[in-house]
Nucleic acid binder design. Sequence first.
DNA 1: CAGTGGTCTAGACCACACT
DNA 2: GTGTGGTCTAGACCACTGC
Lengths: 245, 245
Amino acid sequence: MQAATPAFSPLYQQIKGLILQSLQSGEWKPGESIPSEIELAGRYRVSQGTVRKAIDELASDNLLVRRQGKGTFVATHAEQHVQYRFLKLAPDTGNLDSEGPSQREIVDCKRLRATADIARALALRSGDPVLQVRRVLSFAGAPTILEDIWLPGNPFKGLTAERLSAYHGPMYALFETEFGVRMVRAEEKIRAVLPDATQQKLLQVASGTPLLSVERVAYTYNDTPMELRRGLYRTEKHHYHNALS
Amino acid sequence: MQAATPAFSPLYQQIKGLILQSLQSGEWKPGESIPSEIELAGRYRVSQGTVRKAIDELASDNLLVRRQGKGTFVATHAEQHVQYRFLKLAPDTGNLDSEGPSQREIVDCKRLRATADIARALALRSGDPVLQVRRVLSFAGAPTILEDIWLPGNPFKGLTAERLSAYHGPMYALFETEFGVRMVRAEEKIRAVLPDATQQKLLQVASGTPLLSVERVAYTYNDTPMELRRGLYRTEKHHYHNALS
DNA sequence: CAGTGGTCTAGACCACACT
DNA sequence: GTGTGGTCTAGACCACTGC
């Protein structure tokens, strides 16, 4: 008698896995088109409908983007209509774009060794090399977001403050093109906090001003954590927007 | 020459609309099963596959729940595995259930006339009758959430503090069974704020304690707003959790 | 025009739940 | 066993894009 392991896996799930492998391996890069459904059906020896269902799920996971008449493309953080896909902060009136281009200032960028909590979040070991970036985002001239970002040192070898400052566009787009790291999903933990002296200065707020603390872990393929980000948001003129369904 | 109105609508979208109508009209009530796919295909004179696609979308919108071998059911806030479907607050360790049953205390419940901002949020006119409820939720014995809730007076005629206190289970479940109002989706705006004297007392926090302000508008079918809720969350031991994808 | 994704159908068969 | 949703196939045709 076997142990009860149903292990039934629909064909389309297996196809989904194969497509995922090709995405991870870099066979199809962000922004590029993948082979047509008919072509993939031939390659995997299944019907077009089965490939279709696999692609449907990957599209609803935001890994692929379908464009009728043109093809299916690997999702990317660059040239994506939504400039800030993971940033849920919105002005109380209008939208982020209407506030003109945001200003980014890299305050600090250094290599150091992971503390225990950083290591845990990034699935590293304490003492492993990590990169720490601190930056301030301003909207309509007012400093609004202070972020500390930790990245595993190995995949991001060669990332410098100059590189970051010179790049105009989403940081995650730079990660894709320069380091081959594509962020797929993220989780955030949000709290209300008070700023310390340093934070007050950088955000130009008085002590005692309540701020939103947003701790984000971003994952690449395979649920591998690749970024820890601790943000402080000013919420006098902005709010964190979330849709529940 | 006509104005350019392609107005092409796939069959399954039309079916989706018809099913939605039946949901709104109450032909199928929350928790009940809807007719089988084959039956619906016969009723609408389309193939099972087309009905399937319509139901697929309604299921991914959380309006229907499919259960293999049993049927397709109208989603409900009662008996739903996720006790708190719209509450994104989580303890820093463990989960809400592990903290034992939450305690709810109705602080206040009165009828009044809508102010301008309440009216706007609920798509009413200033001065229209509304019901206001104030309550405190405690987890593990500690008051954690203070909520002010505004409901349009008409659909919620007969709702009283006694009714609310007596009911054990999600408030949205009571809305379904007692008032035939099913909340389908919601939007939240989150800020960091400081409590006023009344709020300090109810939440048992010191002045100057930063709190999460969560303003929610909940909608029933047809994008009709049916509830405005302003919550204050203590975030010393809890956090607002959000998944981005 | 050819090529892509999108829709619709019809039928066969599988997995699951209840009786 | 019967009925439900779930998978898979094959083929026809539609809508959109770009040459």
